[in-house]
Amino acid sequence: MESNSLLRTDREFASVYDRNIRGVYQICFLYLKSHYDAEDASQAIFEKYVNLNKCFNDKNQEKAWFISVSKNYCKDELKKFWKKKRVDIERIERISVHEDTSDYLLIDALLNLPIKYKAVLYLFYVEGYSVKEISQLLYRNESTLRNHLSAADY
């Protein structure tokens, strides 16, 4: 992706962006349930990366950083008053258009999962992390994570 960015180096940032935008966006959407909010959140997270005065040892550490920052950023956003007191237009549209589809049921179920399950599910099912790796990433007990996965499956 060509860019005229003034950051680290243009190419360096572009490659980092390409590697992580998908995961960051998915996590943000999972938490915030809105494409627009997910875009804003993704932008904010990558700006944090730009202003980060630190280098990663490898790509796994880089990915872990993005996942962790995305999760924390979205949780902070959800605490805001504005987020609590509104209904997404997209959700209203989904209700009206996809009400009778099974896809909608699954999407809605995922979006409405408790926050503590969302990141675990994403890391387990999409990123393919093991329970042990997830416990190291999220600083949680392995047995707790297994319970969360079981509950989510149910």
């Binding site: 992706m1 960015s5 962006y17 998908r22 966006y25 932008q43 700006e47």
Partner: peptide, 18 residues
């Protein structure tokens, strides 16, 4: 989860914003 993935257009928009 693929439903939650960004489109190429969305990726471009986010990148240019940054």
């Amino acid at each position: 989860f693929e439903f939650f993935a960004p489109t190429e257009e969305q990726k471009r928009i986010i990148y240019e914003s940054i």
